[in-house]
Computed example of a mutant assay.
Amino acid sequence: MKTAIVTDGKYRMSIAAVRALSRAGYRVVVTQTRGDAKAAPAVSVSRHCAQFRWIDGCAADTEYRERLLSVLQEYEKPVLFCVGAATLNMVAAQREEFASFADFLIASKPILDQLNDKEIVHARAEQLGIPVPKQYDTTPDVFPVVVKPHCGEKFGLKAAERYAVAHNAEEYDAIMKKMRQYDPQPLVQQKITGDGAGVSLLLDSDSKLICALCHRRIREYPVSGGPSTCCESFYDEAMIEQAYQLLHSFGFVGFAMVEFKDSCILEVNPRVWGSFPMTEATDSPLVAQYARAASGQAVQYTPKDYKVGVRMRFLLNDTVAILHYLKAGQIGTALRGMGDVFTAKEALHCKGDNQVFRAYLKQSLLKR
Score class of each variant (00 low, 15 high):
R358N: 10
H122Q: 13
E170N: 12
H248F: 08
L112A: 02
D173Q: 15
R53K: 13
S44K: 04
V91K: 12
S263M: 05
G9N: 02
K2H: 14
V28P: 07
M278W: 11
V83I: 15
Q190L: 07
D283R: 13
I265Y: 13
K10C: 00
V146N: 01
Y325M: 08
Q190A: 03
Y325C: 11
V28R: 11
T279V: 15
D103S: 15
S100N: 15
F314K: 02
L202K: 11
A334N: 03
V83S: 04
Q135L: 13
N269W: 09
E161N: 06
Y301V: 06
H324Q: 14
F98N: 05
G198S: 08
S205G: 11
G251I: 01
A92G: 06
A60F: 04
V188H: 08
A347K: 03
K208H: 14
V18D: 04
A102V: 02
G274T: 03
F52G: 00
E74T: 03
C49P: 06
L323F: 13
V287R: 07
D141M: 10
V83H: 04
Q190T: 05
A102G: 02
V91I: 13
E74H: 05
Q242S: 10
S200K: 08
A256Q: 03
L112G: 02
F155E: 00
A20H: 07
R12Y: 10
R47P: 03
R53H: 07
Y235K: 11
S70E: 15
T302E: 14
Y235D: 12
A293Q: 06
A99S: 15
D8V: 00
R311H: 02
D173C: 09
R292L: 08
F52D: 01
V6I: 05
K109A: 15
S233A: 01
V199H: 06
L266P: 01
K367R: 15
I5T: 06
F234D: 00
S70M: 10
S22V: 03
L105N: 00
G226T: 08
T138E: 13
C49E: 00
V308P: 06
R292D: 05
V287I: 14
Q51D: 11
V6W: 09
Q297E: 15
L80R: 07
I106A: 03
L88T: 09
I210H: 08
S100P: 09
K304N: 14
K77S: 05
Y64Q: 00
G352C: 04
F52I: 00
S228P: 09
T31E: 04
V6C: 02
Y172H: 12
R336W: 10
S44M: 00
D262C: 11
